[in-house]
């Protein structure tokens, strides 16, 4: 009953069970539909192609924001971790951005740049860069100085240093940042879409919110949660296993 393999499934099943009980007690599909109420709506959205269109739009924004935030955040964190002087200058900025509510950044980006795709992606990226930088900075501080010395004596080029000496040391920190990054970014993307885009899961949720259609809100939310879980299992976790293989060997 309490095996580590089985428990997650039982836990999920009991959550769905709770939902079913609550839906049956509510007895109003307008407010809380049962899982089987959702299936025909889900099927209709799939066959009309609308679901995939909006999933694709959101996924593309998530990918862009994720790639930008990870690249910029890693670069910034690495520089701040390596130079205490630069860190003293940039650390207060980081604190400000870390404490700026996501909503404020989103609204300001839309106001200043306009209701554009670029504004949406920049807003999400800016929301995530400080977190990534903070996590990777710890990795930058922990870099092995002997390996630096090695790189210097053997006159290694900057690409070799980055690829084979620095990034492997940062990998656990980058993985931690990526893990929390994906989770946060897609939630912010939905807000950005809700507020100022005319495609994507967030836009659809906005639409069905106005129509008070709880079932469709759930259909879109669950679809995207599934996509993100698949990305976590089939992209992020295999990558993490690959770069940490040497530890277990």
């Amino acid at each position: 009953m309490d095996s580590p393999r089985l428990t997650p499934f039982l836990s999920m099943a009991s959550l769905i069970g709770l939902w079913i009980v609550a839906a049956l007690l509510t007895d109003d599909a307008q407010i809380l539909p049962t899982p089987w109420d959702l299936l025909p709506r889900f099927g209709a959205e799939m066959s009309s192609g609308e679901l995939f269109e909006h999933l694709g739009a959101t996924l593309l924004r998530v990918l862009w924001a994720f790639a930008l935030a990870m690249t910029l955040g890693t670069g910034l964190g690495l520089i701040m971790g390596r130079s205490e002087r630069i860190n003293r200058w940039l650390d207060p900025w980081l604190v400000v951005f870390l404490n700026l509510p996501a909503l404020v950044l989103i609204v300001l980006c839309y106001l200043w740049i306009g209701l554009t795709e670029a504004a949406a992606i920049i807003a999400v990226t800016l929301n995530k860069v400080p977190n990534v930088a903070t996590v990777v900075r710890e990795g930058g501080r922990a870099l092995n100085t002997n390996l630096d010395a090695l790189a210097q004596v053997y006159r290694l080029g900057w690409r070799t240093r980055l690829q084979h000496i620095i990034l492997p040391q940062l990998a656990p920190f980058i993985a931690a940042a990526a893990r929390s990054g994906v989770a946060v970014i897609w939630k912010i993307v939905l807000v950005v879409e809700f507020l100022g885009r005319s495609s994507g899961i967030g836009f659809q949720i906005h639409l069905y919110f106005q129509l008070f259609d709880v079932a469709m809100v759930l259909v879109y939310a669950f679809s995207f949660i599934c996509v993100m879980l698949l990305a976590e299992w089939f992209l992020l976790q295999p990558w993490e296993r690959r770069v940490t293989r040497w530890r277990k060997a």
Binding site: L147, A149, L150, V153, H164, P168, V243
Partner: peptide, 15 residues
Amino acid sequence: TMAIVFQEPTLLPWR
């Protein structure tokens, strides 16, 4: 061209 041998092996453990 120079080479150095540290007190510790100082290898790239991930390669």
